[in-house]
């Protein structure tokens, strides 16, 4: 991984979604030009909700993984794989945004 890539930070896209918590789960309603798109509502389980909560503060992937390892007693390589898959999908859905260094 290049130095430049390591500096990439991720942050939850709070402006384009309305987010609410129910128990450990989370729901996100996308807004397009301020109008709610009720047909594209996203729901997240506890792990996804925790990742997004951590990304309220911009983090590098490594920082995020370190914090998730503090929260969950899981195998590191499995967690890295899961977090990377989550970030890829969430970025594609515009749920999290990339902050270039």
């Amino acid at each position: 991984m290049s130095e430049e890539q390591q500096e990439i930070r991720y942050r939850v896209n709070g402006a384009d979604f309305v987010t609410r918590q129910m128990g450990n789960e989370m729901v996100m309603v996308p807004l397009t030009d301020k109008v709610a798109d009720m047909t594209s509502v996203l729901t997240l389980n506890e792990v996804g909700a925790d990742i997004l909560r951590l990304l309220e503060t911009p983090q590098t992937k490594e920082e995020l993984i370190r914090q998730m390892l503090d929260l969950y007693d899981v195998d590191e390589s499995t967690l890295i794989e899961d977090v990377e898959a989550f970030i890829a999908e969430a970025t594609q859905k515009n749920v999290i945004e990339i902050i270039q260094p």
Partner: peptide, 8 residues
């Protein structure tokens, strides 16, 4: 719903 507060 046509704004964020309303949707929330």
């Amino acid at each position: 719903f046509y704004d964020k507060e309303m949707t929330g």
